[in-house]
């Protein structure tokens, strides 16, 4: 064989091999595309989880359990099966999540149970509505929330209160408070979302030259500009919890805080919380 014949033969072999590889690749294409699609859904959930952690967990809870009185749970059966019908949404639950996260909520649809942050009850998150997130990021958050559907617990029963509500009378005699229990209540009752993790309301912890909420309460009720009825630090804190508009700290708007803690907290719980707050100097 001369050079030309060798090259023609080798060339033919290469072309056949290339064709064979492409054929084999083509046979596996359906599976590869399906796997890529699954992987894409998985990474959307991963990205959504991280975004949820930085943006949503303070109000809706780290595991989507919600905060009573503030923000509704996103991980229970009711949310996935009935919420869409309740608000009369015509699309899917995933679309509903995307739409709600994008545009936020001007007012709560259930103000008696989940008042949100006031007005707007939930801020808009999409860039197109003045929020910080891109459309694809919101779709990822929705994918993460949708991943709770399979394990969503049934919480149709209202949580039972351990005793009668504390009411809005701030002169009431409170039982002895336990600051350790109060610390736990700060997260389960939704205080931490605005007063500890983020500064939506006045921060509780001391920072820089500003003392903690316990120290501030000691002096606040006797200050000249104070508009409430309290005559002790304890009463001042109780008033701020059950009747937050009696006195609003300078720099913060009225109506930001839910007005119904007088009905959802027991006297013991209020006492524990106040004991915890007084310990923050």
């Amino acid at each position: 064989m001369n050079r030309i014949q060798i090259e023609i033969s080798l060339g033919v072999i290469f072309i056949l091999l290339t064709g064979g590889i492409i054929l084999w690749y083509g046979i596996n294409e359906e599976d590869r595309m399906a796997e890529f699609t699954r992987g894409q859904a998985a990474s959307a959930i991963e990205v959504g989880a991280a975004l949820y952690e930085t943006n949503c967990k303070d109000c809706h809870g780290p595991q989507g359990e919600g905060v009573p009185g503030l923000c509704p749970p996103l991980n229970d059966k009711y949310f996935f099966t009935e919420r869409v019908d309740e608000v009369g949404w015509s699309g899917t639950i995933e679309d509903y999540i995307v739409a709600t996260v994008s545009s936020g909520r001007l007012t709560s649809t259930r103000p008696d149970r989940y008042a949100g942050q006031g007005r707007p009850a939930m801020p808009p998150w999409a860039e197109s509505y003045g929020g910080p997130l891109r459309e694809d990021q919101i779709r990822n958050i929705a994918a993460f929330i949708m991943n709770w559907q399979a394990t969503a617990p049934d919480r149709s029963q209202e949580p039972v209160m351990a005793g009668p509500p504390v009411g809005t009378d701030i002169t009431v005699e409170l039982p002895e408070g336990n600051p350790a229990l109060g610390e736990g209540l700060a997260t389960t009752k939704g205080c931490a979302g605005c007063h500890i993790s983020q500064a939506i309301g006045p921060g509780w912890a001391a920072s820089g030259s500003v003392p903690g909420v316990g120290a501030r309460a000691e002096t606040r009720y006797s200050a000249a500009d104070y508009t409430g009825q309290a005559t002790s630090a304890q009463q001042y804190l109780l008033e701020s919890i059950v009747n937050p508009n009696a006195y609003v700290v300078e720099g913060y708007a009225a109506n930001l805080m839910p007005q119904n803690y007088g009905e959802t907290l027991t006297a013991q719980e209020a006492a524990d919380l106040i004991a915890y707050m007084l310990s923050l100097k």
Partner: peptide, 19 residues
């Protein structure tokens, strides 16, 4: 012929490279 051979070699190398 040499160039056609090189092209078939090149195509083979690229397809084998990505698969």
């Amino acid at each position: 012929t040499h160039e056609v051979f090189l092209v078939s070699l090149g195509l083979f190398a690229m397809v084998a490279g990505v698969t």
